[in-house]
Computed example of a mutant assay.
Amino acid sequence: MDGSQGGMDGLPLEPAAVRRFLSDNPEFIRDDAGLLDELGLRVAAGNVVDFAPAALARVHAAHQREAMQRQQIEAVARANFSAQAQTHGAVIDLLDARNHSDLAWRLDELAQHRFGLTAAVVALEAEARVPAGWTRLVEGQVDLILGGAQRLARMGFAPTALPLFGARCDQVRSMAMVRVAMWEPARQGLLAFGSADPQGFTEEMGVELVAFLARVVERTAERWPIL
């Protein structure tokens, strides 16, 4: 019987037909050492085909998959915990700011030294000047950078955001940006982080921690009046 040719009518054999053939011709597998080896089987005492090696191989493979998945979950959990711890430390640093320029300086410093980023910027739409260390934007520029009036955040690479980072813009390959609104009436602005790694910030990433820092910057900046 040539299984590669299918049944007598030239069509592939049905599983039921294969089962019947093996039941009627048990020596087909038992006496074929090469086939037994390929299937991971062996003939035990009493001419019984032993499926233990194949079963053990499947169990071992399943165990390896579970171990890899567990390691991946643990790695993600450790990374999240580390990011949260660094963010909480950053909040304490920001709350110690003495004025608007000190707030911008502290934000940039923690971005570089706590998170290993290229830069962090506070930008504000304003007709005149903005606090020292902040970046001035024209009206509507926040919507343009984020990609729409309804967007609160943007992750990834946005060419229109490169000017935010001034002299360091050539080093920035990805960004995390969150809309901010400060004072009354609300003044529109952005909190932006820049990374030299193209995969540092991607569209698939969550924005929760960055948004949390943005809210901290908003509340801290409102301690002092805008000049």
Rank of each mutant, 00 (worst) to 15 (best):
Q188E: 05
A104N: 07
P159T: 07
A111V: 09
V130A: 07
G133Y: 10
T135R: 15
T135W: 04
W183F: 13
I145W: 02
P185M: 01
E139L: 11
M177P: 02
L110Q: 09
C169R: 14
A97G: 06
G140T: 02
D170Y: 02
Q150I: 10
L191E: 10
L107H: 03
F193E: 02
E109A: 12
Q171E: 14
L137P: 06
L137S: 01
V121G: 02
A120K: 06
Q188Y: 04
F201A: 05
L107E: 04
E184I: 00
P131W: 08
D108K: 04
T135Q: 14
Q112I: 15
R129N: 10
G116F: 02
E139I: 06
E139W: 10
C169L: 13
A186H: 05
R136G: 11
V142Q: 04
A126D: 09
G133F: 12
G166S: 03
R173F: 01
S174G: 10
G133N: 11
A120R: 02
A123Y: 04
G166Q: 06
E109C: 08
R173E: 08
L162P: 00
R173K: 13
D108C: 06
N99S: 09
G166A: 04
F193W: 11
A128Y: 10
L110F: 04
W183P: 00
P159D: 11
T118K: 04
E184G: 01
L152G: 15
F165Q: 00
G194Y: 01
R179N: 08
V142S: 02
F157K: 06
H113V: 13
F201H: 04
G140Q: 06
G147K: 15
L191I: 14
Q112V: 15
P163F: 11
D108E: 12
V138F: 13
L146Q: 00
L152K: 15
L164W: 06
L190F: 01
F201M: 08
V138G: 15
T160K: 14
R168P: 00
A167C: 03
Q171V: 06
F193R: 05
A111M: 09
A123S: 12
Q188F: 05
D143G: 08
G116N: 14
R106F: 01
Q112H: 12
C169M: 14
F193L: 13
L124V: 07
A111N: 12
P163G: 06
E125D: 11
